[in-house]
Design a protein around this nucleic acid. Structure first.
Lengths: 154, 154
DNA sequence: CGACAATAGCTCACTGAGTGAGGTAAATTG
DNA sequence: CAATTTACCTCACTCAGTGAGCTATTGTCG
């Protein structure tokens, strides 16, 4: 960054460096999604959608097309297309909602789960292994930090 | 996640939870890029490229079209188009490399830097502020963790 | 209750971002 | 100094994503 943009402050600089390191990790996770997309023949957006749907399932949340559109930062029409592609590939099933006749519930298939684990499994294992080398208290420190960051970003 | 996919292991579950939280932060950062793209009229890819170019400048690295293509996980042709768009918008300048006649060096303009700070500045400030509430030793723990993660992902 | 508005999701026509094929020029190799 | 590799580019095309606008269901309020 050029001179004059930020006042010289060593403490801030250290914190900023940490934030940049975090962004670097985020970037690499995104590149991994791109690689997964290439190897499976799916599109980046489709993989991103699949990941979000798997996350929703893990969290026990109801995944609807509108919810997915927000998660992807896209329009509802584009999301409709994404769902159609995933449906055609047999990765997701569309079920009409019981409580709301307009809405539908998106259910990921077992094949999609298997596919996801096949690629992201090793990556997650590596990350989990790295995490597991830390003490419980260190893990707690990081978890709290990440939670605070999530709130700060919103 | 459905039953039977992972063996029940409380320690692993805790580490996995931390990894998921990290992914959540990564997702939000990506959504912020999307928002930035919408407000500026640029495209998501263009913003992502700009961010990477700013990172390269900060790190003092030479940014070339090929390097950028790798960073974005795209083909060189698509990257050429990105550079053309950014060039037309006055955000980047293309300069022929001194050492290699085939290559060119990408230089971000002051206007691009100002634009980036205008949008990402508040976000970074929030993240830095959150980081600054931690003790130095806690920051060191997190920094080491993130570095280890970066290596683990590759 | 019945009109009115808001919400969830969709189709259609179109734009343009990204890809594959292939080309040029500079650097490297044997 | 030919042959190969590398860096970047143009061209033609495809299809992912957008805007406009539709239908059906749910919610609101006199």
């Amino acid at each position: 960054m050029r001179a004059g943009v930020t006042p010289h402050d060593p403490e801030r600089a250290a914190a900023l460096e940490l934030v940049h390191r975090l962004r670097d990790v985020a970037l690499r996770l995104d590149l991994a999604i791109g690689e997964f997309a290439k190897t499976t023949g799916l599109h980046g957006t489709d993989v991103r959608a699949l990941v979000r749907l798997l996350d929703a399932e893990r969290a026990g949340a109801e995944a609807t097309p509108t919810w997915l559109a927000q998660q992807l930062g896209m329009t509802s029409q584009a999301t409709t297309a994404v769902i159609h592609r995933l449906e055609a590939a047999g990765h997701v099933e569309r079920r009409r909602s019981r409580t709301d006749g307009r809405s539908s519930h998106l259910q990921v298939s077992d094949s999609a789960i298997a596919l996801g684990w096949q690629f992201f499994g090793p990556l997650l294992d590596q990350m989990v292994a790295t995490t597991s080398t830390l003490t419980k208290s260190d893990q707690a420190i990081i978890a709290n930090y990440l939670t605070a960051l999530t709130q700060a970003i919103d």
